[in-house]
Amino acid sequence: MKCAGVETAGGITHNSFMDQAFGASEFADNPEPRCPCLLLLDTSASMDGPAIAELAKGLAAFKHELALDALAMKRVEVAIVSFGPVKVVADFHTPDRFQPPPLAAAGDTPMGAAILAGLEMVRQRKEAYRANGISYYRPWVFLITDGTPTDAWDRAAEAVKAGEDVKSFSFFAVGVAEADMGVLGKIAVRPPLKLDGLRFGDLFAWLSSSLSNLSRSSPSRPPPLAPTDWNYI
């Protein structure tokens, strides 16, 4: 049953629980503050083989580690955009409802387009939070790639810089194997991280424990993300 909101001029709302907004059910079920985390995953042809398998394994472990923490289970939300070609493989969901998707490697590396698509998803998600009176932590965006963008990435880099400037998200870039660290350094404001070998397991273990910590803190006062932590993985 869907009832339209009965709003009158003058800002008085009648019967506000009949007033539907996008995602109202989900937020009625679980009104906890949200820590959104978007993963931008390179699934271009060069990731084929052990790399994509390790990545998928890391993701599965990530879900289960988050699900062991009762508060993170209600607060963390994960979404995935894969690129090669750009595809939203999972929209924002709490760990209990997030299913690590099957990943297949193919195509080139449209990193610029993926970043722009991802940032748009983050913007829309924040809209949904605001419309539903759900408080949220600054979203985390994680770019994981093993290559060089095959499309124009300057607009994406600008969007990242603009977003970081007004603190609308934190953007992290992780380079694997032959990744072009120079370009990543130009896209991300924070220094990019070079992943040692294919240690996706360690990367996601770090990410899940950082998100657990974050979800225990207060939305506007996140624990500092120690750069040492970050370089350590």
Binding site: G5, G10, G11, I12, T13, S16, F17, D19, Q20, A21, A24, S25, F27, A28, P31, P33, A131, N132, G133, I134, S135, S218, P219, S220
Partner: peptide
């Protein structure tokens, strides 16, 4: 953010919420 709303007394369910530019969230 909630902290700012607290400082500015924006109780979203209060009788005076309109004066504080607040509405109740949907489905409440």
């Amino acid at each position: 953010p909630i902290e700012r709303a607290i400082v500015e007394h924006r109780f979203a369910y209060g009788a005076r919420r309109a004066a504080f530019a607040m509405e109740q969230p949907p489905a409440t």
